[in-house]
Structure formats: C-alpha cells, structure tokens
C-alpha cells in the first residue's frame, strides 16, 4: 500500500556552471510539481559573484571582478553581493507558500533548522544564532537567502567548506584601501569554513529535512516545466538589463555586511573618509583618513567600544548625521541588508 506521507523530492544537480548553479534552483518555482517539497544541491564549477535582487550592481568593484574574470549574476532572493566558488556547497529547500509561516523570520528559522541539525550530526557545534545566521562561536559558516517565486518559497544556503576571504573582500566596491582592509579583517574574524565531508553532509541534510517535513524522500529530476524555465532563466540572468536591476538612490554612507550584526560603514566625504565598524552591538573600530590638509571633525575614534545606540546619539549632530542614519539602519538584531 502506498504511503500517505508527503514526499520530499531530492535533486542533486552535481557540479554545474556558475550560471546553472543559480538558474537550476530558481526553476523550481516554475514547476508543474507544485505541491511537492524539494531539497536540491549544487556546486559551482568555478568562482563567480552573485547579487541579491534589490542590490545595486555598483556595489561591486568592477576592476577586481574583471581581474579575477568572474561572471556576475543577479539572483531572485535576498541578501547582498557575495563571492561564490567551488568550495561552497549550495542547498535549496522549496515548499508551496501555503505551507510556510507568514512571519518571515519564523519561516526562515523553521526552514534553516534542519540545516543546523545536519551540521550538529556531523560534529559541528552550529547554531541558528540571535541574528538568524548559522554560526559556530559567532562565526558565520553558512550563508542563506530566501524568496518566493510564483507560489513556491525557496530558502537557499551555501555550506562554506573553504573561504577565500581576500577575494570575497576584493569584489566589493569601497572608496578606500583602509575600508577594504577593515572588511577583510572582520571577514576573517566572522566568516569561517567548515570542512565537513560533502557526502555525509548531503545525507544528513536529506534525513533532517525529511524528518522536519514528516516526508518520505524521493530522488527526482526537473519536470518539463522546470526544464523549460531553466532555459528562460539562463537568458534572463545573462541579460544586461536584469543584471543592472532597478536603479536605486545612492546613500551617503556605504554599508557592507560581514554577517548579520557585523557591519562596516564607509562615509566618504570632502573632509575625510571615515570607516566605522560594528560588531557585537558595539563600535569595533573607527578609522579616519583626512583629505589633504583638512582636519576632520569631530574626532570619532573615541567611539570605539561604545554601544551602537550611544554611538548613534553621539553622531546625531548635523556634521555626522549620515553616519548616525547608517547606524540606525543596522541596529543590533537587524538581519537584513
């Protein structure tokens, strides 16, 4: 007698081109399989850069991107610009929107919980931390994003088995070498690799997601509609218009997220380039590079160690209001950016 339990379709795309490492799983939103939950895996065969749906292409350092010969694609889910390479194993869980809690933070927590448990099974003491990141001892070990395509919710992540901090920092546009050095310093501190066995991880993921959904697993393949969608998405993702995205007003302060709760703010203004980084709810570092013979005021380095709210208050005067506004948008607990 056939089981009445729901099915979890499992797809392993294997090692694929950078483009297909995006378009294959996006196509899951366009399938006829509709009601089936799907867990899929892919690994890009070479490095590339990927932009979140709502991010400006100008956030990338085009010189570095060209130097490393990195393709750039824009995904349909959230998050910032990221450097991706074969040392990152991608996973995607997709579900009909009707089966996902309407509160987004809760949906993410529920749909990332099996990924955390899979790591724990492999001996990695991972947690879904208070910022919504999968981390070990405060260091992010797995990126993620989510989106709704048609009537399907997709939560996607990448297990970082090796991480090229230098390239990840190099592809982000900044005004000053000091900013890039600060980004790199914090990336090294807060983004870490987890060198687990890929096959064991994949098996643990399948079992944990099946348990979470109360489902029987079923190896599968893309259906006809999904295959057609892959070809449409290939064309879309390689079009200049899609890559450019919707123009957005530039902000006076450039904010780079290292991981949720850890930010580098760069304020490039006529007197100086000011770099202010936030970690653990406090100002972690302040760097001020004066322009020419100008003297930047006020002295900001005294803010190091201050709580974010106190720093924001101290910066609220007109002369530094842009920095205060940037801090307000990246308060502790803020997970989006």
């Amino acid at each position: 007698m056939a089981s009445s339990r729901p099915r979890l379709r499992v797809l392993d795309f294997g090692t694929v081109s950078p483009l297909r490492s995006q378009t294959l799983w996006h196509a899951l939103g366009y399938g006829e399989t509709g009601s089936a939950a799907t867990l899929s895996f892919a690994r890009p065969q070479s490095p590339y850069v990927c932009l979140g749906l709502h991010r400006n292409a100008e956030e990338l350092d085009s010189v570095a991107v060209d130097r490393y010969q990195l393709p750039v694609y824009r995904r349909m889910v959230g998050g910032g610009p990221v450097y991706l390479d074969p040392d990152q194993l991608f996973f995607q869980i997709s579900l009909p929107v009707s089966q996902v809690p309407p509160r987004r933070s809760q949906a993410l927590a529920e749909l990332l919980a099996p990924a955390v448990r899979a790591l724990v099974r492999l001996g990695v003491p991972a947690v879904l931390d208070e910022h919504g990141e999968i981390s070990v001892d405060g260091r992010k070990v797995c990126g993620h994003g989510a989106g709704q395509i048609e009537d399907t919710v997709l939560v996607v992540g990448n297990l970082i088995t090796g991480f090229d901090h230098e390239r990840a920092a190099a592809v982000l546009r900044v005004s000053s070498p000091a900013t890039r050095a600060e980004v790199l310093r914090l990336m090294r501190r807060y983004v870490a690799a987890t060198p687990v066995d890929p096959n064991a991880w994949r098996q643990a993921m399948v079992e944990e997601y099946a348990a979470q959904l109360g489902a029987d697993t079923l190896p599968g393949r893309l259906d006809t509609d999904e295959q057609a969608a892959v070809h449409r998405l290939d064309a879309l993702f390689t079009s200049a218009e899609w890559l450019q995205g919707t123009p957005r007003p530039a902000k006076p302060v450039r904010t780079i997220k290292i991981r949720a709760g850890v930010w580098v703010h760069e304020w490039d203004h006529p007197d100086a380039c000011t770099v202010l980084s936030i970690a653990d709810g406090k100002v972690d570092n302040v760097l001020v590079e004066p322009r020419g013979d100008r003297t930047p005021t006020p002295a900001l380095t005294s803010l190091v160690g201050a709580a974010v709210d106190d720093a924001r208050t101290a910066l609220s005067a007109a002369a530094t209001a842009p920095l205060a506004a940037a801090l307000a948008a990246t308060q502790p607990g803020q997970v989006s950016a």
Partner: peptide, 9 residues
C-alpha cells in the same frame, strides 16, 4: 517585490 530578513516576497 519586498525584501526583509533576506527573504524576497
């Protein structure tokens, strides 16, 4: 589209 918590809806 609208993005919150890295979730685009």
């Amino acid at each position: 589209s609208l993005e919150a918590a890295k979730y685009v809806g």
